[in-house]
Design a protein around this nucleic acid. Structure first.
Length: 151
DNA sequence: GCCAACGTTGGC
DNA sequence: GCCAACGTTGGC
């Protein structure tokens, strides 16, 4: 059964345009257990995800991508020179993992957070819940489908 | 840059 | 195992 996701990233670090260029990219740097568990336990190859730009002028959904690998060790956790280095993650038993994502499309016009908040049809989305900070959240099919009607 | 809301850490 | 202090996220 295909699942749907929303994955946040700061466009200054890696944007939808960057993904459009490289086509496939490891989604590294996740250092939150809930987000990790989603990748480890619930994501499958072929799942679809919204690419969301956060911490920017107009936060919102900017494109779509496909999960292109199973979860595997996030090697950036092993390297002391990396920003996301975490000494408690060991190569033989990695704490942190990542998946590859594949570019599907960039939206002609982003669907901003501000716009999403206007629609009661998506008011239940985790993204819109107060205090939500998770960078990876599941998206219900009904929400996924409704957002497509906005494109 | 501010700050609310979380998540994590570490002393006890 | 509790919880205060600290760190991070992310919208505004």
């Amino acid at each position: 059964m295909m699942k749907y996701w929303l994955m946040k990233n700061e466009p200054e670090a890696f944007s939808i345009d960057d993904l459009a260029k490289v086509k496939t990219e490891p989604w590294d740097g996740i250092r939150n257990y809930q987000a990790r568990n989603f990748m480890r336990d619930d994501m499958s190859m072929g799942d679809k995800a919204f690419f969301y730009h956060s911490s920017c002028k107009a936060p919102g959904i900017v494109g779509m991508m496909e999960i292109a690998s199973k979860a595997y060790a996030d090697h950036t956790a092993f390297d002391p020179n990396e920003h996301y280095y975490d000494p408690k993650s060991k190569p033989d038993n990695p704490t942190w993992i990542m998946v590859d994502v594949k570019f599907i499309s960039k939206l002609d016009a982003p669907i901003t957070l501000q716009a999403l908040r206007q629609y009661p049809q998506v008011s239940g989305m985790r993204l819109l819940q107060k205090g939500n900070r998770l960078s990876i959240t599941p998206v219900e099919k009904k929400h996924w489908d409704f957002i497509h009607t906005l494109m």
